[in-house]
Simulated scan of single mutants.
Amino acid sequence: MARLRNVLWLGFFAAVLWAWWVLYSMAVGMDLDLIGRPGPMGEAMRRMDPRMDMYMPMAEFLPLFWMWALMMAAMMLPTLVPTLQSYEDLIISADGSRAGWVGIVLGYLIIWLVFAAVIAGVQLALLFGGVIDMLGIATSPLAAGGLLLVVGLYQFTRGKEICHGVCLSPMGYFLGHWRTGFSGGLRMGLGLGAYCVGCCWGFMALGFVGGVMSLLWMGLATLFMVVEKLPQVGQYVTRPMGCVLVIAGIAVMIWPLTTGG
């Protein structure tokens, strides 16, 4: 049993590292640095018109979905660790199982893959609407600042509070929705994934502010979402981050006015 536990955890973290490596390789291939700033080739890509009669991966649904799916694995699987640790306790004290553990991970991933499909479609709509460029970077301070403002204000809403409460205390969710075996774990994973999307969707959407392939944004967003779900400190960081995002959004929108840009 201990050997199976180690194999599952090693596979879990190997999947996370693999996703990050592929994303890094993609960023290098797009000629982006750590913060998503394009080099000469990337600048040329930004200026491309998505309506051009030629194949451009960032203007097609499947490549975008693949990119977002990798980002979901790289950024969201680490935030699942506290939840899986809570389930580990139930394997010992209740009738949890390794099959249930696998079911939770799978159910969680399914929900985030659905979200990846949705946000890939949103990116295409924003691209063809001229709101973002080919690299997923907002084309105007109004769009970037508005998104920062919306995500910041969401941190103060009842919806965020409810979803964050589940993410912060997965044991309470398990006790109220307990199911056994793989199918039970899958059902619980789907529920947990839905609450997690409700909690974290905004930080995924913030990729459109600085570029969805910015490794710096991905790293910082992942770190914050992990911290936000830690029982000891999570409840103390949500609203302060909301304040930071609101201030940043207002600053981004008014900066061109103050500089005459």
Rank of each mutant, 00 (worst) to 15 (best):
L135R: 03
V244I: 15
M1V: 05
F12H: 10
M71R: 07
S169M: 06
A27M: 11
V114H: 00
L84C: 09
G181R: 10
G29Y: 11
V150M: 13
L34Y: 12
L190V: 13
T222E: 04
D133P: 02
G146N: 07
A125Y: 09
F65W: 15
G11F: 08
L23N: 04
I132W: 07
G189I: 05
Y195D: 02
A15I: 03
P57L: 04
A120M: 01
D133W: 04
L206S: 03
L192K: 04
E60D: 09
V122E: 06
L230T: 10
S25E: 13
S86E: 10
G165K: 05
Q85N: 09
G159K: 07
G202S: 03
F156Y: 14
A73V: 15
R179L: 02
M225I: 11
A59W: 02
V150L: 15
V209N: 08
G242L: 10
Q232R: 15
P63R: 06
M58V: 00
L4I: 15
V151L: 11
G136I: 01
R3F: 14
T83L: 01
L245V: 13
W255H: 14
P231H: 08
M1Q: 12
L142T: 13
M218E: 08
Y108G: 04
L216C: 00
A69E: 06
L230W: 14
L147S: 07
G189Y: 11
F156T: 04
V118H: 05
L245Q: 12
L175A: 08
I119W: 11
T157P: 01
R51E: 08
M225G: 02
G249H: 12
L168A: 12
V226E: 00
L84G: 05
N6C: 00
E60W: 02
C200E: 08
T79P: 02
G29W: 08
L90D: 14
Q155M: 12
M52D: 14
M253A: 14
T157A: 03
L4A: 14
I91F: 00
A27C: 08
F13L: 13
L153H: 10
V122W: 10
V246S: 06
L10V: 13
R179W: 01
A143C: 01
G191K: 11
